[in-house]
């Protein structure tokens, strides 16, 4: 019993975690309109999804936003991690503290503070405001991922590069960047997923000119049941799964 009890318990909790996801996937292939009864296998909801032009546009918008937010946050996050790792400068603790605050504070707090800023400086809510906001909440995750990689790294390498006459920039490019590459990829994928998934911050900082997927889903699921959402959710699930496996694979491979 001592061996089986923990295993049974683990299995039970995993079951609970996965039942809703399995239900969603199964019902996405359901012919029936009502969404509760099984009406036979069908791809009609996937068809409906792709025939909906506004939906397809929102998908592209979200993908583009996630791509750009992940790229910018990886770039700035990597530079931040390098600065924190290598430079001594005044206010380092303050910098660290700000990153920590972004990561820990409830999303809604970040959301309203950014909304206040954008309205104050007169920035029209749309792609740019979404990008700035998404990069900001992705940033600490990239920094942490890269810092973790840098902390296990032989300090003598950059010194050797310097002694051989490399400038700071050359040394970063030829020594540090290759070392942190796996962390950059993992951070990028994490940023991409966070951006694609975000509802709370986007609700506040998006405008009618740039509709994104999570907000479209949000307006669909608030009332009643929409079978298209099952299909969309299944697609998003497969997509995230691929991204997650990719990032784990990159991290595992780099450890060897």
């Amino acid at each position: 019993m001592n061996r089986w009890l923990p295993r049974t318990y683990l299995t039970l909790v995993y079951l609970l975690l996965y039942v809703p996801i399995v239900v969603l996937v199964v019902f996405s292939f359901n012919e029936s309109r009502t969404g509760y009864e099984w009406g036979g296998l069908s791809l009609r909801w996937y068809e409906a999804l792709f025939n909906n032009r506004a939906m397809v546009q929102a998908m592209w918008n979200s993908l583009w936003l996630a791509l750009s937010a992940a790229t910018v946050s990886t770039l700035i996050g990597a530079l931040t991690a390098l600065a924190l790792h290598r430079y001594r400068f005044r206010g380092k603790k303050v910098l660290n503290g700000m990153l920590f605050i972004v990561m820990m504070s409830p999303e809604i707090v970040l959301a309203i503070s950014l909304l206040a800023l954008f309205l104050l400086v007169g920035l029209q809510l749309g792609y740019v405001s979404l990008l700035l906001a998404h990069v900001t909440f992705c940033l600490p995750f990239v920094v942490i991922t890269v810092m973790a990689r840098l902390s296990g790294f032989d300090e003598r390498l950059p010194e050797a590069a310097r002694d051989l006459g490399a400038s700071d920039f050359t040394m970063t490019r030829t020594v540090l960047i290759p070392v942190i590459m796996p962390a950059l990829l993992a951070g990028w994928l994490l940023g991409f997923t966070l951006s694609l998934d975000d509802v709370v911050v986007s609700t506040f900082v998006s405008g009618p000119s740039y509709e994104i997927l999570p907000l479209r889903i949000y307006s669909m699921v608030r009332v009643g049941l929409k079978p298209e959402v099952n299909a969309l959710g299944t697609l998003l699930l497969v997509f995230s799964l691929v991204m997650l496996i990719l990032s784990q694979w990159i991290l595992l491979r780099s450890k060897r």
Binding site: L196, V199, P214, I217, V221, G233, L237, S240, L241
Partner: peptide
């Protein structure tokens, strides 16, 4: 890593 809105909807 899966969309939290979609998971809430599944519930």
């Amino acid at each position: 890593w899966t969309n939290s809105l979609v998971r809430t909807y599944a519930l």
